[in-house]
Simulated scan of single mutants.
Amino acid sequence: MKMIDRPIGLESLGIGNTQVSISANARLLNENYKQGFCLNTVDQLRDILKKNGLLLHEDFIKESVLNLAHVKNDFDIDIDDIISELELITPSKFFKVIRDNGITFESINKGDKMAVNVYGKHYEMTKANKSKYKGLDINFEDFKGLSRMESRLNDWRTVKKYLGTRNMHDILQQKNTNYIMLMNILKGQSMETPKLDLGQFKTISQLDDYARTKLLFEQCNGNYGLMVAELKKRLGNNTKATYQTNKIKKLLPLVQTPGGRKLVNLVCLKSKLKE
């Protein structure tokens, strides 16, 4: 297929002796972009491929396997409100990167080709990546006020690990995938913490733990990974850091927001993703 003839969203199409390989994103669906690839748009996908010289069986998704998958949910919570609360989260199994229009959590496990992006969809379409949507019959106003959570599983092992299958039909039937991903990120995090009161530290040891956490937080600019690394330097090679790092995790919310916090938008997001 010549590049000039390729429809927007169809990245590659390969036809072999025994199998077909397709790489595509939801822009291929044009006016139905907002729905994404789902059971409701499978027939449209098949028709588009037919027009481009590939006729697939009507039940092709039952025989299809995915080498990567991006799972999305759109929700009507202001992206700035979501980012302001996700900034306070210090997950132990994810790197966190904050951007102007979003935030990314990437697995620290090098074997996982996985990242979770949360971003403002309207801004992404009209400002950040405007050229990607040129020529498509999309009403950008339909995305105004929407934020998107997108879990990107970028190799077949990661797809299998997190979705339990690579079968396209089974994956399109699944629900709550992004809820599960969010719960992995929020694991061990408190959605509400009280206002700091030094009187709650009844012993010198407890006060020392708080002071140590506060010092590490300030010196490491809130980077949890660096805080743990600094702690381990002083414990020695033969001493496990689990006990000390658990103390840091427990006290970190009080250090981050001494005035107390209630992550109401994240609680709301959890509810929406579970619907």
Rank of each mutant, 00 (worst) to 15 (best):
K110Y: 01
I171Q: 08
L196D: 00
Y224Q: 07
T213C: 15
T177R: 03
A69S: 09
D209Y: 14
R27D: 02
C38I: 09
N73M: 05
G9Y: 00
R261E: 15
N32Y: 04
E124Y: 06
M183C: 12
L68E: 15
L251N: 02
E11H: 14
S151Y: 03
K240V: 10
L45I: 06
K187W: 05
R261P: 08
V255I: 09
F201H: 06
N17D: 10
G188W: 05
K51L: 13
V97F: 13
L146Q: 11
M191T: 09
L163N: 07
Y133K: 08
K93I: 06
I180Y: 01
A115K: 15
I138P: 14
Y123V: 14
S107Y: 07
K175H: 15
L66F: 09
P194I: 00
N129F: 13
T177M: 01
Y33P: 03
T257E: 02
T165W: 04
R166W: 02
E63S: 13
N246L: 08
N176P: 04
H70K: 08
R148P: 02
N101K: 09
G188I: 06
N167L: 04
A128N: 10
N154P: 03
R99P: 04
F94Y: 15
F60N: 05
T126L: 03
G199A: 03
S131G: 04
K214V: 05
Y210E: 00
T239K: 12
D137T: 10
K233H: 12
I138S: 10
G36V: 05
K202P: 03
K247Y: 04
Y162M: 02
K144P: 12
D100V: 03
K250H: 13
S131F: 12
D47L: 13
A241M: 02
L163F: 10
V264T: 10
L273C: 07
A26C: 03
N25D: 12
K250V: 06
M183A: 08
D43Y: 07
Y224G: 01
K34Q: 09
L235A: 06
K187Y: 10
L13S: 04
Q206F: 06
F94I: 02
S131L: 11
M125E: 05
E85K: 01
I79D: 04
D81W: 01
L153W: 02
N238R: 15
Y119W: 10
L216A: 07
K113V: 08
E192M: 12
V71P: 10
F140R: 02
D137K: 08
L196A: 01
I89S: 07
I79V: 11
L88V: 06
